[in-house]
């Protein structure tokens, strides 16, 4: 069962396509990372996901209630913390007041403190509280860690993961820093130049890809036997990042597992490569 899916999703701003023919599905309960360079269309995809903007073509489907935290983590600066939580309660029937109160207490903040007087990290935590207490089934976060110091990044991520463990909700979060996501996300979507390049479970992607290093003389023969994502040729030695199994290799070759960050970089360097789920028949 998918928590979130798009089919042929496209968005054009004036003459420029921000997103083209994007089809992807994220199963329920996953923590999905949406990565890609600046201008890849991440924010456009997320805003389409939560209905802030309308698609030019295609469809977005989200199962259940959706909460959204935008990159700027907007809050009303003049409100107190208590008023901010009241804002959440008044505008959301599914508001979980106990969760909000517990999180504010955990942060060690007084309900009377003004939002404008909080630090960037505290404000991010308050903004996160506001979306978590809505008890959404799908939580969409646009660059939740941007503009935060390393400690605050860690704490926001930890709070998010604790909430996921408690509620089993699906999370879709964007970032251009892959290392932030390495140990927290179990689904990866790579977006590049407005197109989806990769979408799949992190474990499967890591299993399916490998790094092969061997003599330059044999590299073409090996490359022909499998799908090459990225290739680096030196004078005597070549390195291939491949998707699939090339079969038996001569002893001069070494194979290594590939990390998430290398995988993402390899795809971003080769915009024509793709690792997408092949069409499968699903039982209804």
């Amino acid at each position: 069962m998918n928590a979130f899916s798009t089919t042929g999703l496209s968005k054009r701003f004036r003459r420029k396509w921000a997103l083209r023919d994007c089809s992807l599905a994220i199963p329920r309960g996953r923590v999905a990372a949406l990565v890609g360079p600046n201008g890849a269309g991440k924010t456009t995809l997320l805003r389409l996901a939560v209905g802030l903007i309308r698609p030019t073509a295609g469809e977005v489907t989200a199962a259940g209630a959706v909460a959204f935290l935008s990159q700027e983590k907007p809050l009303y600066q003049g409100f107190t913390l208590a008023e901010t939580m009241r804002f959440g309660r008044e505008l959301n029937p599914s508001w979980d007041g106990d969760l909000a109160t517990a999180r504010i207490a955990e942060l060690g903040l007084s309900p009377k403190s003004k939002i404008g007087a909080l630090s960037g990290g505290q404000r991010a935590q308050v903004a996160l509280t506001l979306v978590l207490a809505k008890r959404p089934e799908l939580l969409v976060l646009d660059e939740p860690l941007s503009n935060l110091d390393p400690l605050a990044r860690h704490e926001v991520m930890r709070a998010l993961m604790a909430a996921v463990a408690d509620s089993g909700m699906t999370v879709l979060l964007s970032s251009h820093v892959v290392s932030d996501l390495e140990n927290t996300c179990d689904w990866l979507v790579v977006l590049n130049r407005g197109r989806v390049q990769v979408s799949g479970a992190v474990d499967d992607l890591v299993d399916e890809h490998r790094l092969l290093t061997g003599p330059a003389a044999e590299v073409d023969a090996v490359a022909a036997r499998t799908e090459v994502v990225d290739r680096a040729d030196a004078a005597r030695q070549s390195t291939l990042l491949v998707n699939g199994d090339p079969g038996p290799l001569s002893p001069q070759w070494t194979r290594r597992a590939v990390g998430l960050e290398d995988l993402v970089l390899a795809y971003l360097r080769s915009p024509d490569a793709a690792a997408l789920p092949r069409p499968t028949l699903t039982s209804a």
């Binding site: 802030l52 935008s70 907007p74």
Partner: peptide, 12 residues
Amino acid sequence: RGTALLAWTQSV
């Protein structure tokens, strides 16, 4: 102030 993104992504 960017709060349109806050106000318009609630259940209301």
